[in-house]
């Protein structure tokens, strides 16, 4: 069971590494366990995890003061497939090399990461899945 999950994650990462550019616009699930949208809603608000709210508005009434650097994510679940959303959360530079959106599931090719965070991703694989599941529920523009 464990091994299988790791293999799926490994495959997805290999696709990302090999694909780059447009080829990586869709990404297979990183874990065998489906994402939990309720958990994802908590994860995107987590201040210790480079919260999406720094840059994006989200339809979360308790968060009235988001940044306005990226587009409003309301309705994003209707605009993108789960695979496309996953690719953006994992590493948005594969879609736009100049993006300011941080890579939430990448450790390679980063410059001078603080010792405390070196070799670690911002999100765990399961957190990526939870966030993707949550984004999928945002269907109202």
């Amino acid at each position: 069971m464990r091994r299988g999950r790791a293999a799926v994650a490994g495959l997805a990462l290999a696709a990302l590494a090999a694909g780059g550019g447009a080829g990586a616009a869709e990404l297979a699930p990183l874990t065998a366990q489906p994402g939990d949208p309720a958990r994802g809603r908590d994860v995107v608000r987590d201040l210790t995890k480079a919260t999406c709210l720094i840059c994006h508005a989200l339809p979360i009434p308790e968060e009235p003061n988001p940044g306005n650097i990226g587009p409003n994510l309301a309705g994003v679940g209707a605009r993108f497939s789960a695979g496309e959303l996953r690719a953006r959360v994992v590493d948005a530079t594969t879609i736009n090399p100049n993006t300011v959106m941080p890579p939430y599931f990448r450790t390679e090719g980063l410059n001078r990461v603080l010792a405390r965070w070196r070799g670690q991703t911002i999100y765990s694989a399961q957190e990526v899945e939870d966030v993707v599941a949550y984004l999928g529920t945002l269907r109202q523009p």
Binding site: A50, T51, L53, I54, C55, N65, P66, G67, N68, I69, T93, V100, P102, P103, L110, N111, R112, V113, L114, W117, Q120, I122
Partner: peptide, 20 residues
């Protein structure tokens, strides 16, 4: 850094925008 940003990306390109 882990957030993978340059000074220029914030202070040249995004000056005036809201970061939270």
């Amino acid at each position: 850094g882990q957030l993978n940003l340059s000074c220029a990306q914030c202070h040249d390109d995004l000056a005036g925008r809201k970061l939270r």
